[in-house]
């Protein structure tokens, strides 16, 4: 268990890692915590809702991992430092730190209250900054560890009506890159910083978002499961990479945006207008879970049928491929 001397390392065995997860009460954070618990990891769970965290901790223990609960609001730098301290008190080290706490606000730029905009920046960006500061102090001292920041493909291609969210997700990529560069210049080869860029994920983010558009927010298809992101996070611990996109549609969008940035920008705008915001169901204006956490004990999934939709997509793709194969075979026979 001795941390290797500040030499180069190529990831680590996933078993018995000490992992801190912010935003562990719901969505991607929760799914990641559960996936890691399945690999015998020791988890330090943090979010605002203690009740939800307790439930996640129980689920983690049931999967064979260990978990402690340290409720904190990531906008409070001291509270985040305290999370790191508790992790060291209980487990003696931190191998992986996952920043996954995020909120969002939907609304035309001018109509979004400034305090809501500011809150999104505070949670999504300053929350990560606090996490990175607390984590890197420990990881650098150990000479080894992985820091994983969950951004979004919105961090590559922005969306209309969510300028705050998009701004923070771009900023997170810059933050990760900056840290990676600093570590490289300092020769701290054992500490890795990774960014995850998920496409639309089936999480409660959309229901809990602040909304000033007057239209209900839906998960924009194609929707992927949070377990898929969790799987990617596990693979990043084993083999750290700089940036990873989750979801094939996201990957192709990111790629396409390099060749035809103007077109992809307009495509994204159109998609959000048509499919992200409902054209039938109106929604009252509200600040969602920005200032007060949502009620209940949370969940990884958000009820957008990510699993079923993935299965459907796969079936459709398989059917299409099969059809094409049959068609080409019969044409050749003629």
């Amino acid at each position: 268990m001795e941390p290797s001397p500040a030499g180069y390392f190529d990831g680590m065995r996933i078993k018995d890692r000490v992992v801190v997860v912010t935003g562990a009460s719901s969505g991607i954070g929760r799914a990641a915590a559960l996936a890691l618990a399945g690999h015998d990891c020791a988890l330090v769970l943090t979010a605002r809702r203690e009740g939800a965290l307790q439930q996640v901790a129980e689920e983690c223990t049931a999967r064979g991992g260990q978990a402690i609960v340290v409720p904190a609001d990531v906008t409070d730098a001291d509270a985040v430092q305290q999370v790191a301290r508790q992790a060291l008190d209980r487990f003696g080290r931190i191998d992986v730190w996952i920043n996954a706490a995020a909120v969002t606000v939907f609304g035309p730029f001018q109509d979004t209250p400034l305090q809501d905009f500011r809150r999104v920046v505070d949670v999504n960006l300053m929350g990560y900054v606090h996490g990175c500061r607390a984590a890197l102090a420990v990881l650098r001292e150990q000479g080894r560890g992985v820091l994983i920041n969950v951004s979004s493909i919105v961090g590559v291609i922005a969306q209309p009506y969510t300028p705050a969210y998009g701004t923070t997700k771009f900023a997170i990529r810059a933050l990760s890159t900056s840290l990676r560069q600093e570590l490289w210049l300092d020769g701290a080869r054992g500490v890795k910083v990774c960014t995850v860029l998920p496409a639309t994920i089936d999480t409660p983010l959309f229901q809990q978002a602040a909304n000033y558009t007057g239209r209900e927010v839906r998960a924009m298809p194609p929707v992927y499961t949070p377990e898929r992101v969790a799987h990617t996070i596990v693979s990043l611990v084993r083999r750290p990479r700089r940036e990873v996109v989750v979801g094939p549609m996201g990957r192709s969008l990111v790629l396409q945006s390099k060749f035809t940035p103007g077109f992809v920008e307009k495509l994204m705008a159109f998609q959000v207008h048509r499919r992200h915001l409902s054209r039938k169901h109106p929604a009252p204006a509200g600040s969602g879970n920005l200032h007060e956490p949502a009620a209940g004990t949370g969940s990884a999934r958000g009820g957008w049928h990510g699993g079923r939709r993935t299965a459907l997509r796969r079936t459709a793709t398989a059917a299409m491929l099969l059809g094409a194969a049959v068609a080409s075979a019969s044409r050749r026979q003629r």
């Binding site: 268990m1 000490v18 209980r90």
Partner: peptide
């Protein structure tokens, strides 16, 4: 007293 546990050791 309180307890601590070092994973993997």
């Amino acid at each position: 007293g309180y307890s601590a546990e070092i994973p993997g050791a």
